[in-house]
């Protein structure tokens, strides 16, 4: 079993870790959730029928683990943010976990985009991470989220619009 786990780990661990990290934006929490994903995976290994790919299966479990986490934390309401308020947002960020060095060493625009992700809904953020950060196809994303590809496309479109709006407001240095 260790070999199978190791195989899974080596193939998908970095993507899995990044997916969960961008969802929750906190490394210790990410480690806990990744561990929970692996536990669920190993417990249900014998029920995996191979109808989806292992990757889709793994990320689908990761998605559910993350949703459970948000529910437990009662953060769902915060995620469906109202209008963007940059000053408030900056203050909020100061209270949050530190920006990881992988982000901190990147350009200012990347750092800003990292912050703007907070103002997408959970669904939008999941689609954005899977589609653009993880470079998955629309079909893979739809399979992971158990959505139709139409819903993925619509959510993706709205997420891009939302991010564009946040970025413009930041660059303009004003709030709406």
């Amino acid at each position: 079993m260790k070999e199978s786990f190791q195989e899974l780990y080596e193939e998908y661990h970095h993507d899995l870790f990044s997916f969960i990290f961008y969802m929750v934006k906190d490394k210790p929490t990410t480690e806990d959730l990744v561990q929970e994903v692996y536990i669920r995976v190993l417990k249900s290994f014998d029920t995996f029928k191979g109808q989806s790919s292992r990757k889709t299966w793994l990320f689908s479990i990761a998605r559910h683990v993350t949703i459970d986490f948000f529910r437990k934390q009662g953060r769902r309401n915060k995620q469906t943010a109202q209008r963007f308020d940059f000053d408030e947002h900056v203050n909020l960020l100061k209270d949050q976990s530190p920006t990881p060095y992988e982000i901190a060493e990147k350009s200012e625009e990347i750092q800003l985009m990292y912050q703007c992700l907070d103002h997408c809904t959970e669904d939008q953020r999941a689609v954005i991470i899977l589609r653009y950060i993880q470079q998955m196809s629309i079909k893979e994303t739809a399979d992971i989220l158990s959505w139709t590809t139409s819903k993925v496309k619509t959510t993706q479109h709205r997420a891009i619009l939302s991010l564009k709006e946040q970025m413009l407001q930041y660059k303009g240095g004003h709030t709406e």
């Binding site: 990044s18 480690e31 990744v34 992988e102 990347i110």
Partner: peptide, 18 residues
């Protein structure tokens, strides 16, 4: 440009080992 920026977001490394 938004999509390009997103595609340049880095993978986050895990400090824990296998």
């Amino acid at each position: 440009s938004i999509k390009k920026l997103l595609s340049e977001m880095p993978q986050i490394k895990d400090d824990r080992s296998f």
